[in-house]
């Protein structure tokens, strides 16, 4: 009996420890050694000096319309039948929202310096802003193990989670008007964050209209590990990566094509432009599909054969940041930048 209780205690302890750290997956694509990443870390602010939002409050569309213009950017997620939007004007001051959607603990992360929004599952821990940067990209830490993760890399580079990948889910960095057209019942992160910030002002510039740091031709702020001048520094691409390679899709090319099929290093990818959200949905696999009649629902594109394909996470990024992390990236572009 005593042994049974001891065993149960060990199992419970082990389980709670496992739940305290973020769920780990296989290391994502890395074009450098962990040590090289650590050596290129820069300091931008104090740890938690950019405070994450840990008790988010939400508002409805009507209230959000008083705060957001249709062309303002939001990061949207659709999970377990629920849509949520996180205004860029709030995230620029906090970079991480530790949220719970239908009982699932998640973190919505945004890096203003690289224009990237990614979602991560987090189990029982929270992510915070370390104040460090790699290739100008937000370096997060988890509050259970203090491991550090560059957001784009989505892999631990120090601490107990070093070399382990984070479990991502799809976010869409789009305009508020587009998001509410797709998700009219969406809930929206409120300015009632408990932290004093002027949410009517972006310290770096503006996306509506685009200005300041976000202008494509403007200069980057911090040193990077690799430079690539195929595009202007802040040019937005849609990026996706697998364990083997990274791919950057030029958004103008995608808009014009509607659907792009490409075989890269033996694997077939299908990228579908979503005209409402102005984003791309990426799939991998060899299954036959009919892309002639695609319609779009809350979850994204619907077409015959979709179940035979594997969805691949994709997100917008500024070109300099993408190429800094993935210098060997493939570029899909009908223009002179194609490679």
């Amino acid at each position: 009996m005593r042994h049974t209780i001891l065993l149960m205690a060990l199992v419970i302890t082990g389980t709670s420890e496992a739940l305290a750290q973020p769920p780990a997956v296989q290391s994502r694509l890395m074009d450098a050694a962990l040590e090289d990443y650590r050596d290129n870390i820069r300091t931008g602010a104090a740890k938690d000096g950019i405070p994450s939002i840990d008790d988010p409050v939400f508002m409805d569309v009507e209230a959000a319309d008083a705060f957001l213009a249709d062309n303002d950017r939001v990061i949207g997620i659709y999970m377990n039948g629920e849509a949520r939007a996180y205004p860029q004007r709030i995230l620029v001051w906090h970079e991480i929202v530790n949220d719970t959607v239908d009982g699932e603990p998640v973190s919505i992360t945004y890096c203003p310096l690289t224009g990237t929004g990614l979602g991560f599952h987090r189990n029982g821990t929270e992510f915070g802003v370390s104040g460090k940067l790699l290739n100008s990209n937000l370096v997060m830490y988890d509050r259970a193990t203090e491991s550090r993760y560059p957001q784009i890399l989505a892999t631990g580079i120090s601490g107990p989670m070093a070399g382990k990948g984070l479990e991502e889910f799809r976010t869409v960095f789009t305009e508020w008007g587009r998001w509410k057209e797709r998700h009219p019942d969406t809930r929206v992160l409120s300015t009632d964050t408990g932290i004093m910030r002027n949410y009517q002002q972006d310290p770096y510039g503006d996306y509506n209209p685009i200005s300041g740091y976000y202008e494509p031709e403007s200069r980057r702020m911090f040193p990077v590990m690799n430079e690539d001048d195929r595009y202007p520094v802040k040019h937005e691409i849609l990026g996706f990566r697998t364990g083997n390679h990274a791919v950057a899709v030029d958004l103008d090319t995608l808009r014009a094509a509607g659907v792009i099929e490409r075989r890269i290093e033996g694997e077939r990818y299908v990228v579908i432009h979503d005209p409402v959200l102005d984003t791309g949905w990426v799939y991998r696999g060899d299954a036959e599909i009919d892309t002639g009649e695609i319609d779009f629902g809350a979850e994204g594109p619907r077409f015959d054969g979709r179940d035979g394909l594997e969805p691949v996470n994709a997100f917008r990024a500024m070109w300099f940041a993408w190429s800094a992390f993935y210098p060997n990236t493939t570029v899909i572009d009908d223009g002179p930048g194609d490679a």
Partner: peptide
Amino acid sequence: LLLLGIPGLGAFAA
């Protein structure tokens, strides 16, 4: 940094 716009100056931001 935005004002000066000098790439690499961010290394000294701290």
